[in-house]
Amino acid sequence: MSAFVHMLRCADGSYYVGSARGESLDRRLAEHQAGTHAGYTYHRRPVTLVYAEWFDRIVDAVAAERRIKGWSRAKKEALIAEDWDRVQFLAKRPAARARSSNPTTSS
């Protein structure tokens, strides 16, 4: 059974990152929208799917979820925008970022 990691933009502008098993993201998104589970998104609805990635194994989706949850807001937004140069730049330590040029979004 496949699994996925997903990121939602909440009504308050925050991001929620989660993972789940399944073949389709539709059911999980419907649960978030309906407030089925009293969790982070319950009082932050409606939510919008901004990123999803599928995996063959749930352990890989959970690992990606944990990794992304630790990212800064800027790095999450670079991932959403598929700005891989910026994701890579933001992955550097602050001192290394200061020494290199800051990549900009599309010119």
Score class of each variant (00 low, 15 high):
40 Y>Q: 13
12 D>T: 05
38 A>T: 13
32 H>Q: 10
84 W>L: 04
72 S>D: 13
82 E>R: 11
7 M>T: 04
8 L>R: 03
73 R>Y: 10
66 R>E: 15
33 Q>G: 05
58 I>A: 09
42 Y>L: 13
76 K>H: 05
104 T>E: 06
47 V>F: 02
31 E>A: 14
31 E>D: 15
107 S>G: 14
34 A>W: 01
7 M>A: 07
14 S>Y: 09
28 R>V: 06
31 E>V: 08
49 L>C: 13
94 P>K: 04
56 D>Y: 10
98 A>I: 00
73 R>L: 14
69 K>W: 06
62 V>Y: 11
16 Y>V: 10
101 S>V: 11
20 A>L: 03
61 A>Y: 05
25 L>M: 15
73 R>P: 06
58 I>W: 11
21 R>M: 12
83 D>G: 01
40 Y>R: 14
31 E>S: 14
25 L>I: 15
17 V>I: 12
15 Y>L: 15
5 V>S: 03
89 F>W: 10
54 W>S: 14
88 Q>C: 13
41 T>Q: 05
38 A>N: 14
68 I>A: 07
31 E>N: 15
23 E>G: 14
59 V>H: 15
18 G>C: 07
86 R>I: 12
19 S>P: 07
35 G>I: 02
10 C>I: 01
1 M>N: 08
96 A>L: 09
99 R>L: 07
100 S>N: 06
70 G>R: 11
64 A>D: 07
68 I>E: 05
32 H>I: 05
2 S>T: 13
107 S>C: 11
49 L>D: 09
33 Q>S: 07
32 H>S: 06
15 Y>T: 07
58 I>N: 10
90 L>A: 05
42 Y>H: 14
102 N>R: 09
43 H>W: 09
76 K>Q: 09
66 R>Y: 12
61 A>H: 05
100 S>P: 02
11 A>W: 12
82 E>W: 04
39 G>L: 12
45 R>C: 02
4 F>C: 03
96 A>I: 08
85 D>I: 04
103 P>G: 00
7 M>H: 02
87 V>H: 01
105 T>A: 05
34 A>Y: 03
45 R>T: 01
48 T>W: 11
98 A>L: 04
61 A>C: 09
27 R>E: 10
74 A>L: 12
106 S>L: 14
18 G>I: 03
80 I>Y: 06
50 V>Y: 12
10 C>H: 02
63 A>G: 13
18 G>S: 07
101 S>H: 11
